[in-house]
Amino acid sequence: MRVQLALFASLSQYLPEAAAEDRVSAHAQMVDLPDGTTVGQVITTLGLPDEPRIVFVNGRHAPDEHTLAEGDRLAIFPPVAGG
């Protein structure tokens, strides 16, 4: 399945190499994943650092156990805040 993957701030560096046509923006690109892949499995595959993170699937908070579906957008942030 095709999923849009977005990584921000200090996690940007973990975005895999992507073909030009797969790049969506500075922080996002399309990736191919096996059906039934969970958020946690993506995090493990990418080798993201073991620290708290904020995960959204389609703009809503999602736990690591969340199973992704075709066309989803998965966005992951390190702990950030401001105001």
Binding site: F77, P79, G82
Partner: peptide, 21 residues
């Protein structure tokens, strides 16, 4: 993590992408 790393590295505007998301 926020006051020790996130804010000093990117400033408050690091929020733009996450609030947009």
């Amino acid at each position: 993590a926020v006051t020790g790393q996130g804010l000093p590295t990117y400033g408050t505007n690091v929020l733009a992408n996450i609030i947009n998301e």
